[in-house]
């Protein structure tokens, strides 16, 4: 319930108008949105029970390795139940396969579409989504870890909350199923990071400073 209360309001995209090239405009709009979402994500992380008790080094490491996973849980969740096959990056930024391909994001689309379809079949509840997002961050396998014990305590707290929630719904298999969806989330995030780095390095798409800093930490 704490995670539900601290879940940030979804951001709206600010349409880029610096170019007439519509696929570049889409890409720049998306990157601006991701940069602002990152800012919100960092503020949100501090409110997860146990996160602020971690050393600053561990807080940084977890965010540097888990940020894209946490952001993609949000995109996949917003894309649930949407008619058609589009990905909902924001209420006013929905991209279909063709738009993603034109923007150089075909690989990102394929990966995210797979993740979205998986979550759709699982029929996630809002409680599960916010816990999954926090667990993705806590489980980000940052290396090296400064204080393993604190990070494990942080993970255990979230796992316990999820188990309690599922047992209150008499859904004994749900916890395991959610945990088993984490490898696909990791894989999807890796593909998303690679796609953005490729666009930045090969097509010289300019990125905001924070987004670039976080991508560089994954490179």
């Amino acid at each position: 319930s704490h995670l539900l209360l601290t879940e940030p309001t979804p951001l709206a995209a600010n349409q880029d108008d610096s170019t007439n090239d519509s696929s570049l405009r889409t890409l720049l709009t998306l990157c601006d949105l991701l940069n602002r979402e990152l800012l919100v994500l960092i503020g949100w992380a501090k409110q997860i029970p146990g996160f602020s008790g971690l050393s600053l080094v561990d807080q940084m490491s977890l965010l540097q390795s888990g940020w894209m996973e946490a952001l993609l849980v949000g995109v996949a969740w917003r894309s649930q139940g949407v008619a058609g096959e589009g990905l909902v990056f924001a209420g006013n930024l929905r991209l279909d396969e063709g738009q993603c391909r034109a923007a150089g994001l075909a690989d990102l689309y394929e990966a995210l579409h797979h993740l979205t379809a998986k979550y759709q079949v699982m029929n996630l509840s809002p409680e599960e989504v916010v816990t999954l997002k926090a667990m993705a961050l806590a489980n980000s396998d940052a290396d090296p870890v400064d204080c393993l014990e604190s990070v494990q305590r942080f993970q255990d707290g979230l796992h316990e909350a999820l188990q309690e929630y599922e047992s209150s719904r008499r859904e004994q298999h749900r916890t395991g199923r959610l945990l088993m969806s984490l490898p696909l989330l990791r894989q999807t995030a890796d593909r998303a990071v690679k796609a953005l780095l490729r666009l930045h390095h090969h097509r010289h798409v300019p990125l905001h400073k924070l987004l670039l800093e976080m991508l560089d930490a994954k490179a």
Binding site: L39, I42, G43, Q59, M60, L63, Q64, L210, E213
Partner: peptide
């Protein structure tokens, strides 16, 4: 941590 200065600053900022 010079390379990650924005993240560092955001985490240190208590608000």
């Amino acid at each position: 941590k010079e390379k990650h200065k924005i993240l560092h600053r955001l985490l240190q900022n208590s608000t």
